[in-house]
Structure formats: structure tokens, C-alpha cells
Write a protein that binds this DNA or RNA. Sequence first.
DNA 1: TGTCAATTGTCAGTGGCTGTCATTAGCCTC
DNA 2: GAGGCTAATGACAGCCACTGACAATTGACA
Lengths: 228, 228
Amino acid sequence: MTSPYSLNWENSSDERHDVNLRERKKRRTRDALLRAALELFATRGYEETTVDDIAAAVDVSQRTFFRYFAGKEETAFFVPRLAEALVVDAVRARPPHEAPLEALRRAVLESWDTINEAVEEHVPIELHLRVYRVIESTPALLAAHLRRAAELEEQLAGIIAEREGLDVDADPRPRIVVALFGGVIRVTERLWSAGDDLTIEGMRELTATYLDQVGPALAGNWRAGQSP
Amino acid sequence: MTSPYSLNWENSSDERHDVNLRERKKRRTRDALLRAALELFATRGYEETTVDDIAAAVDVSQRTFFRYFAGKEETAFFVPRLAEALVVDAVRARPPHEAPLEALRRAVLESWDTINEAVEEHVPIELHLRVYRVIESTPALLAAHLRRAAELEEQLAGIIAEREGLDVDADPRPRIVVALFGGVIRVTERLWSAGDDLTIEGMRELTATYLDQVGPALAGNWRAGQSP
DNA sequence: TGTCAATTGTCAGTGGCTGTCATTAGCCTC
DNA sequence: GAGGCTAATGACAGCCACTGACAATTGACA
């Protein structure tokens, strides 16, 4: 920190990340724990997997597991965390002339395309897709998932408000639009995880289809119009 | 069940509920545990309260606590559970000619009026209102709260679909509208619990105001129009 | 009053998670 | 390349939520 190289360290910390054996080893055990956990969740179930099981699968002590992850839950949300970061960045990068819903829509669809490589660096996506069903069907994980989603929405509301030059706390509209958007996403998530097309592309298509329904869903009375 | 009185028992079970000493005693300890738990949560915080604390406050064993409640969490959501039931009933009772959002809006505002008596039978509402802040600010409880909300939305979507003569799984619109509605409710909940008017009336007003914003929030571009 | 069933307490055990301390293993300098 | 430094690990003890099992108690009802 106070060494003459401190500035260099700050800037090149990414490159230094994997150079020494120490760091490489750390990353290896971390990814191994992650994969072991997800594999066990996907096959045996979340509640049926103990932290001891995970640690044993990688042949480290339980204590070591907790030094890499704050809790069992954190392993299950490793990929979602990456995805959320991508979405936030994508929304930030949207041209300011787009309407809020349009910007959100494009950002999400776009980030579905980049998610692959970001994830595969640590675990095979296919593995996460299997874990996703577990998240949706395990009460404790579903609850955590929804809380994370709520936090994401709060962030997005802030970004949207900024785009539109509004104050999030004074004007309810950013939060409302984001809530609507988030609701649609959740509906598609559930549908997708319940169906059998467990691919990223399937998710992408579903999302696109449902987001297109938002307008019609809110317009007028449904009974007069034709089927969706 | 197979006794000659079984039918009578079924029908008059409500009246029989408090007649014998056994039942009265059970209800008393149950309500005492509930109040003790909420009181402790409100003053000391949720995580800082152990089940042993709650049991000790009522002078029963920890094991007995778990015979009355499935877990620590359940005590915190006693009032919300009542409220949810009221909302569901209120939506079901709405005249079928009302549009979905209108029916939901009226049902919720209406149930805020009946919630008082339903709750006070067990614990003072004022106590729950204090606990509500704890729910919003405790990650584990917030997560559980959001999961409950999601389940409620699923129920409401079913009811709305039925009103409109639609199939929830074939037509996305009921779920989308309910998601929008739920989103608005969540926004008001957060705002209300963050403010200082912690009364049912305050909540009612906030809800009404925000629900009125739903239309404007979705209409056109915000930058051209005037302030909300 | 005595029998039966329900309520409760006690005890032991599991699983998630944390603090502590000694041991190990990579790193860096001389 | 030996030795000191520091970071990573393991082993152990302990807290808390929660559960199963069994014995003791207590209200119900004939």
C-alpha cells in the first residue's frame, strides 16, 4: 500500500491474479468447491447436500469451505451474480433516447448473449441451468433469489431514473416500470424452469415473447379483444 | 372421525375451540409465545433473538416453542399471513365487471380496513407495525417476505384469470398484471416502512396514491410531460 | 376415581456457521 | 538454498435453529 509499487499494483492487480502458485491454487480450490457444490445440488438437491459433503468432495476441511464462501447459499448464486452484473452494465450502456422499457428489454436480451463466456470460465453453464431448477423449487433458495431480484430492481430503478433525469425517491414511475419489467422476467423464469427447453436460447426466446406481451396485457378489457 | 358425533364436531369445531381448559391453555401459550417473539424482535432485533429467549420469556421449553411454530420465522409472519388471507377473500368478492387492476386495487384498500380486528384478537397491531420494519431490514426475513408475496401473486393471478375466463398457463396477461400490481404494493411497503407514519391509515393512503400512478407511469415518454 | 390421550420437558443429535490456535506451505530476501 | 515472514489450512470447541425419541405430567371423560 505504501510501497513505491502500490500504484502499479492497483492497476495491474488483474494480471498478477494468477501468476503465483498461491493464487492459482486458491482459484482452483474455489472453482472446485463451486463445481462440487453445484453438481451435488443438481443431483441430490440443495437441502440434501451438507457443507461437509461439498468439502469432502474437494478434500478440504469444512472450515476451508467457509473461508471461500460466506455460506452454502452463496455457491448456488454464483452464476446469477455474474448475470446480474452483466445486466446492470448493459442497461447503463443503452443509448439514452430509448424509452425505459425498451432499454431494459434490449439490455436483458443482449446480456443473455454474453453470459456464456463469462460463466464458462468458472463452471459449465449446463451445470448452472440444472441448478436453476433447484433454486426455483427449493423454498429457501427461491426466497433468496427473489431478494436478490429485488435488489437488482432497486439498482435498475436508480439507473432508469438517472437516464430520465428524475429523482427515484420523489417520482414513483421508475420503480414502477422496473417492477413491471422484473415481474415479467420472473414469470418467464418460472415458465422456463418448469418447461423442458433448458437452454439459454430457450430462455431468450421466452423473454422476448413475454416482454412483447406487456403492452397488450395492460390495454383495455381483455374479454372484448381476441386471444393473445 | 367415525364416532356418531363426527359431523357435529366438524361443523361446530369453531365453537368448541375455546371451551375446554386444554384448548384455552394452548391458545394462551401460543399467543404468549407470539407476543413475546414479536416484542423481542421489535426491541432487540430478529437475529439477536434466540428461540431460547422467546421460550424463556413465556417460561416453556424450547421444544414446546417448536410444537407451536414451525420455526422462528413463522412468528414474524403471523400477521402478514392473516392479511394475505383477507386480501384473497376480498379479491374473490369483487364484482366481476371490474377490470383486473381495479378489482385488485379496491380489494386491497378494503382489506386494510378489516385487518385491525382480525389481528387484535391475537396481538396488538401496533406491535406488528414495529415488527414490520424489522422484516424489511432483516435480509432473511425480507427474503421470506418476498417469497410469500410471490405465492400470493400466484394465487391472485389464478383468481384474476378465472374472473376473465382465461387459462393462467396459456395467457400471460393475468400474471403480468398481478406482477405489476404486486410491484406497486412492494414499492409502497418499502416507502412506508422507511418513513415515520407507521399507521394503517398511512399505509392505506400511500397505497391509494401509488396505485393511481400506475397509469401515468406506463404512458408515453416521461420527459415531455409534466411532473407527476 | 381411574383410565386414556394429549401436552410438555428432557436429552441427544444434526447441520450451518464462527472464533481460535497451531500447523503447513508458498514467497521473498540474503 | 536456508531461514524468516505471511497467508492458507486443519482441528477443535462452541452457538443456534431444529428434530426425534422417550418419559413425566396433566386435562378429559367415562
